[in-house]
Nucleic acid binder design. Structure first.
Length: 334
RNA sequence: AGCAUUCGAGGCG
């Protein structure tokens, strides 16, 4: 049985979710873990309908769910904002006695706060004998995603007062709302806290900091943060490119793209969509063509937003005929 | 013996 679940997991993690399902369907005695792996596999493949479907089938089969079952299925509700099912699952988790299991409670809070049911989120909070940082992060993130910076900051202060140490997830959740406010001083204060308390800098936090500084128009600090450590990945590079573009520094955006290519990083559709406006701004069809060619070669021009960025770029470079060709060849138009 | 929770980059308008 454990061989089966590992195999299904392997398939599901490598974009072979259908193969995972085939295997799952022929397994004779499916235990709880097997169902869980299938639910989670669909979740990771962004197939939320099937994830829920499998959960419902599991209930029908009479297999007893464990806490992981609730965590995975509740995650689907959090991601998709399905409050109705989330509430039902809350009820079920009480029945099965998982309500105060930390990961289950954390995910419940995540569901409620993402759906703006902050009172319910609080209620879960209060049933917990001990709260951990994940629980706080979950609710802070809910506030941030609903554009409620003040409340997020209040909660942040509250957790510190209670002696709970914010971690890198806390900050990578919180910083985007400060970035949106463009209040640089607030951002610097947060950054100061991070440095003073030695909050570990991972790629998530680093890219949040870079983004923050760019959005607050402090290009120097964005650049310094980028260069200060060697931590990089394609998301951080893309953040640098879009940050430069935001600040009208198209040449720097292009240079950053060259650097990332030299380092052998793989740009994706978001990277190109960030870079193309720089080509348009520079009115450089030569550069734009190069990027277009790259997109074609790597099969990432079919993403609609890349197509429209290419189109816009050609139009702004005065190559209306090329723009027209791109439009005709776009596989999906909207 | 096998599964799980909170966080990151995007175009035109």
């Amino acid at each position: 049985m454990f061989v089966g679940s590992s195999l299904i997991k392997l398939y599901a993690e490598n974009a072979c979710i259908d193969d995972a399902r085939l295997l799952f369907d022929i397994m004779p005695n499916r235990d709880c873990v097997l169902w869980n792996v299938m639910i989670y596999g669909y979740l990771k493949n962004e197939d939320y309908i099937n994830a829920i479907e499998v959960f419902l089938e599991m209930r029908k089969s009479g297999t007893k769910p464990n806490s992981v079952t609730f965590v995975s299925t509740l995650s689907v509700c959090a991601t998709e904002g399905i409050i109705r099912l989330g509430t039902q699952l809350h009820g079920l988790s009480v029945i099965f006695g998982f309500e105060t299991d930390p990961p289950v409670a954390n995910t419940l809070v995540s569901v409620y706060s993402k759906c703006k049911h902050f009172i319910d989120a609080r209620r879960v909070f209060e049933t917990m004998p001990r709260t951990d940082v994940v629980l706080w992060n979950a609710i802070i993130s809910g506030y941030v995603q609903n554009g409620m910076m003040e409340q997020a900051l209040d909660l942040f202060n509250e957790m510190i007062d209670l002696g709970i140490k914010p971690d890198s997830v806390t900050f990578s959740s919180l910083l985007p709302s400060i970035a949106e406010s463009t209040i640089l001083e607030l951002g610097k204060e947060a950054h100061g806290y991070i440095v003073r308390h030695g909050v570990p800098l991972d790629v998530f936090l680093k890219s949040a900091l870079i983004d923050l500084y760019f959005k607050c128009k402090d290009v120097k600090m964005a650049k310094r943060t980028f260069e200060q450590t060697s931590l990089t990945d394609i998301v951080i590079y893309t953040g640098m490119i879009s940050g430069y573009v935001l600040n009208g520094m198209n040449m720097d955006a292009v240079e950053t793209f060259r650097k990332l290519m030299d380092e052998g990083k793989r740009p994706n559709s978001l990277t190109l969509a960030s870079l193309l406006p720089a080509c348009a701004g520079l009115a450089s069809p030569r550069l734009g063509k190069e990027v277009h060619g790259f997109a074609l070669k790597n099969g990432i021009e079919s993403r609609c937003y890349v197509g429209s960025a290419i189109l816009d770029m050609y139009a702004k470079c005065g190559r209306v005929n090329l723009a027209h060709n791109v439009f005709k060849n776009m596989s999906q138009r909207d």
